[in-house]
Amino acid sequence: MRISARNQIKGTVVDVKKGATTSHVRVDIGNGQIITSAITNEAVDELAIKVRDQVTVVVKASDVMIAVH
């Protein structure tokens, strides 16, 4: 995967909580730090995001996205 965003942080998914339309994905980036991303349930399903997955948190402006590789 290639992306232009420079703020990329690798981590491990520690929790996925689905709501009515939006999921909160918690990613452990090390040293006791957790980043939470709010993404659509559809994105979670399409990317098959689950606990213990290795992902990259991509921060662009005020958005926090998840990249699966």
Rank of each mutant, 00 (worst) to 15 (best):
R6M: 14
I35A: 08
A43N: 08
K10V: 13
V13W: 07
S62W: 03
D45Q: 07
N41H: 05
E42P: 01
S62F: 07
T56G: 09
E46Y: 02
R26Y: 07
Q8Y: 03
V68M: 14
Q8C: 11
I34Q: 06
S23W: 06
D53T: 06
T21D: 11
V44C: 08
M65K: 10
R6F: 13
G11D: 03
A48N: 15
M1P: 13
I29S: 13
G19D: 03
T21S: 14
T40H: 02
A20R: 02
M1S: 13
R6L: 15
T40K: 08
K17S: 01
T56H: 04
L47A: 05
I66K: 03
N41E: 02
V68N: 13
V68T: 11
M1T: 05
G30N: 02
K17L: 09
G19S: 08
S23N: 05
I34D: 06
V13K: 08
L47Q: 11
A43K: 07
A20N: 08
T22R: 13
V14Q: 04
T12Y: 02
V25C: 08
K50Y: 14
S37C: 13
D53M: 11
T12N: 04
I3T: 04
V27M: 05
D45C: 03
H69G: 15
N31Q: 09
A61T: 09
V51T: 09
R26W: 07
H69R: 14
A20F: 03
D15N: 12
Q8M: 12
T56W: 00
E42C: 05
N7K: 11
S37N: 08
K17A: 02
V68E: 10
E42L: 04
I34P: 15
